[in-house]
Design a protein around this nucleic acid. Structure first.
Lengths: 351, 351
DNA sequence: CTGAAAGCGCTAACAC
DNA sequence: GTGTTAGCGCTTTCAG
């Protein structure tokens, strides 16, 4: 059994092997210029002592920490946590470590301390995995440029000169709208997310545009704003049924609110999808088991995180400091529609 | 506008201020022994240059990194991500940083590299936030003791001489069982989680014990094993209805599987709760909006993470190296039953 | 092939 | 009050 002592340093290994620390360094870094015998002897001492090089000391001298800073928010929601899931997998894969910060609120705006904490720990790059909400992007030009470190942003409106990875929310809801129209729904209402959120605005815009292209004039009472929660979905649906009496379908901006809306429809004795069609967004694993199963938009949040990591590592390793740094680019992931019973009324007689 | 240059070091600040690096050190550490004028002058240079001390260099010399290692698994599930949510909040609160590792599988057993990565980055303590599954705890005595570093474990069977923070799964399901029995259900089946999981075994044991105490003999066909997913819930429920024809209630080990079971009940034309009572576990936010709303067991996973952080920081700061280290202790959180329509048949006529 | 010297950015211990 | 020296654990020169 190895003994429980404070870990040995390179010096102690050197002493125990009868060589200089330099030679130990060469062995642990797998440099070629060590004689086989020396290498073997040193290796044995390393194993015996359980020596592991200090990543800290290395980071200091090499000016590369092989550590990524990740800033997230709302880990209690499935979206951010699935994305983080993809980030951790890719970070691990690349042999990096991950320093995590979670903002207390989505619209937190005092980001200086966050950056300080990350930069003072010498992260090689930062993934800003916080949705664009309200004014929480105003600092980009002010602050981010001060820090000479690559940053990649998730889930936000693409901007000039920065790297962004996002999901195409607009196309997602357009797909859902096309499907509802094909199914013969004519009076499609919308429950949006909070319009403070860029994603909510994108999804709503898709609804509006599709209506317009179908020759329906937009009216304020065709639409109610929710806050992503199921409870807000029930409130929004109640209001919507009241103010939009012709309504025969609801495009809901996420699955949770759609679940709330379904509950209200049931309470009113409306049959889904015959009397009212409903679609969601996110494709929660549970949505396939709602009553009835929910038509929704699937987007790959895991992959979102994975791609962000791969991109930033590419930027880091291609030499951020070089004369010609890697050009910032935006990556947009395309979602897909998952058709389920909640919107499929073609099989039924029209009422 | 501050200029975008590589961050200044303490040396440059010293040169610019015309004092020694030592004095700079005293100022940034708020030591008393600096004259007001010097302090002021240095402070100004610091602000002007945008100097921030390197946490890395400090960690190296102080032998304290103010960084916690957190190991998790299954961030795509709500449980682990809510717990991480609590961890990040508490870590931030305490002024620590957080190094995150996610295991690719719950039952991963090659933990040596994980520890190496964390220890080589000089974390002050480790939170092992991975559920106890299969053999994934065998290494505790072998490996963990090799590392002279405090570790706290979440969600596992309490053991001698280690610090554990868990939720009382057993009591949770006992509460649910008492409630079902009070409601007059007599033939209560069970859909368990995978019995590889300690939590699944605890929940099942509560069901068994409650049956026995109620004078019902346990039979193999009163029970089916699921894998936590809604899909497995449907399969398990189908099988259970087949093999346990008298069944009038199902104690389901989590909300997702309960949702699947509800779907099957509906398909069979059974009314919930009149013909079949159903309870879940976890209190997913959505469970209040299932059709009907689901009776479930609430447990505070956020707080679980928060407490773990507070506990390990207490251990670290009370002097892990001292002669008499802090005694390991277990913290067990008590869950609460949330009664909703899916199990409330007292209001209805018995059929 | 191997070692000695210097130093990454900072602080502890001691002078003065 | 302030500066000097040494060194955290490692790697990068540069000799030999």
């Amino acid at each position: 059994m190895r003994q429980k002592v404070s870990r040995p340093t390179i010096k102690e290994v050197a002493a125990a092997s009868g060589v200089s620390t330099q030679t130990i360094s060469r062995v642990i870094n797998e440099r070629p210029d060590v004689s086989p015998e020396t290498r073997k002897r040193v290796q044995e001492v390393i194993n015996k002592l359980g020596y592991r090089p200090s990543a800290l000391a290395r980071s200091l001298i090499r000016r590369r920490s092989h550590t990524l800073g990740v800033v997230t928010a709302g880990l209690n929601y499935t979206g951010p946590s699935r994305t983080l899931n993809g980030i951790t997998a890719a970070v691990e894969q690349a042999g990096y470590a991950l320093l995590l910060k979670e903002l207390p609120r989505f619209d937190a705006n005092s980001n200086e301390p966050i950056f300080q904490a990350l930069v003072s720990r010498h992260v090689d790059g930062i993934i800003w995995a916080v949705q664009e909400v309200g004014e929480n992007r105003n600092w980009i030009n002010k602050l981010a440029l001060d820090f000479d470190i690559p940053i990649i942003y998730l889930t936000m409106e693409p901007r000039e000169n920065i790297s962004v990875v996002s999901i195409n929310n607009y196309v997602g809801e357009r797909l859902a709208m096309s499907h509802l129209l094909e199914q013969g729904y004519k009076h499609i209402g919308h429950i949006s997310g909070p319009l403070e959120w860029w994603e909510a605005r994108q999804r709503m815009k898709a609804w509006k545009d599709a209506l317009q292209e179908g020759g329906v004039e937009f009216r304020e009472d065709f639409w109610v704003e929710g806050n992503w929660s199921s409870a807000s979905g029930t409130r929004a649906a109640e209001k919507l049924f009241e103010q939009y009496t012709d309504m025969d379908a609801i495009l809901v901006a996420n699955d949770q609110m759609a679940l709330g809306a379904m509950q209200i429809a049931h309470q009113k004795g409306l049959r889904i999808p015959q009397d009212i069609g409903i679609t969601g967004f996110d494709n929660l694993p549970e949505s396939a088991f709602f009553g009835p199963p929910l038509t929704t938009v699937n987007h790959d949040q895991y992959n979102l995180g994975k791609l962000a990591v791969e991109e930033i590592i590419k930027i880091i390793e291609s030499g951020w400091d070089e004369e010609v740094p890697t050009q910032p680019k935006s990556i947009i992931l395309e979602p897909a529609l998952i058709v389920r019973a909640s919107s499929l009324r073609m099989g039924y007689e029209n009422k």
